[in-house]
């Protein structure tokens, strides 16, 4: 569906994407995970055929965006990071006019609009103005709009950024249903839970390059331990204590507010910490997540 080889994007002297290789297969949910500024959105804009490629090769549905931009855009759905809805139109009219941009006949668009309003649970809001919708509703409307052409690939740039937890879950649920229906999803996110929940496969991006690739589980297995013991001590003590516990796990990370000890058995780590007479203010044992993978690969956290 999407193939990139040595794909690059520069803006003047700044290189946002520094040569990445990507393969997205039909029917999978593929993610770009990385912090802000990793080059995810620049990549997505090139894939959406709205931003010219600066170097390397890119094929979307077998087509070259430099040559077949409009034909590619006819067959992908784009849910941008920032809503570009028409605030002066109603919910229904937003979907309707958008369907017309794809050359769909009026009757066909009307039936799709009804279907999509139902799908994103906005049927009752169909006559409302966009500016009266909540953030979550706007996002769902944007997702519905991106589906009006029944795309072969749906591109979602940070689909839940800025939404409250409940609204995020509603969006995830809808995306999960799309995935079950066989729609190919490509999404960028800086939320590791989003990537874990939705992606079959993902690449971890940092500073314009791909630093790891695989399924969420594969990445965690390859780059982290099964469990993590989080230890919280007093402010400023973490560096000193890290040395005292460094032998208890595969590795120890020092964060501003806590220590992370990576080990197969977190409870055992905690027990040994206490045996050594250390008194953490708070402890937590959890499974490794993609956040840990990212920390391992880049030395930084995803959300600063």
């Amino acid at each position: 569906m999407i193939l990139a080889r040595g794909l690059r994007k520069s803006f003047g002297d700044f290189e946002a994407v520094k040569g990445i290789d990507v393969d997205v297969r039909r029917g999978e949910a593929f993610g770009f995970l990385g912090p802000n500024g990793a080059g995810k959105s620049s990549t997505m804009r090139m894939v959406a055929a709205v931003s010219p490629v600066s170097g390397g090769e890119l094929r979307i549905l077998g087509m070259d965006p430099a040559v077949d931009g409009p034909s590619i855009r006819a067959r992908v759905g784009v849910c941008p990071q920032e809503d570009t809805l028409d605030t002066e139109l109603t919910v229904r009219d937003n979907l309707y006019v958008y369907g017309r941009y794809f050359g769909l006949p009026r009757k066909e668009v009307r039936s799709r609009v009804d279907e999509l309003l139902e799908f994103v649970q906005l049927t009752e809001k169909s006559g409302s103005m966009v500016e009266d919708l909540s953030g979550g509703m706007k996002r769902r409307l944007t997702i519905a709009r991106s589906l009006i052409n029944r795309p072969d690939v749906l591109l979602l740039d940070e689909p839940t950024t800025g939404l409250d937890p409940q609204a995020r879950h509603v969006v995830w649920d809808r995306l999960f249903r799309l995935k079950q229906q066989g729609v190919t999803l490509v999404l960028t996110t800086h939320y590791m839970d989003e990537a874990e929940q939705l992606c079959d496969r993902l690449v971890v991006m940092d500073k314009g390059v791909i630093v790891a690739e695989g399924s969420p589980l594969e990445l965690i297995r390859a780059h982290s331990t099964r469990e993590v013991a989080e230890l919280r001590f007093g402010v400023g003590e973490h560096d000193a204590i890290a040395e005292k516990v460094s032998d208890l796990g595969d590795r120890v990370e020092v964060l501003p507010d806590r220590l992370l000890v990576y080990s197969e058995d977190g409870e055992e780590v905690i027990a040994k910490v206490h045996e050594r007479g250390l008194q953490p203010a708070a402890v937590l044992v959890r499974r490794s997540t993609l956040e840990d993978v990212f920390l391992r690969l880049t030395g930084r956290t995803l959300v600063d």
């Binding site: 794809f102 029944r150 072969d152 729609v183």
Partner: peptide
């Protein structure tokens, strides 16, 4: 929930000529 139709055959959604 309304089931969405699968991706269409190319042709219905097109680039302008």
């Amino acid at each position: 929930m309304a089931a969405l139709d699968p991706p269409q055959a190319p042709g219905l959604s097109t680039a302008p000529t």
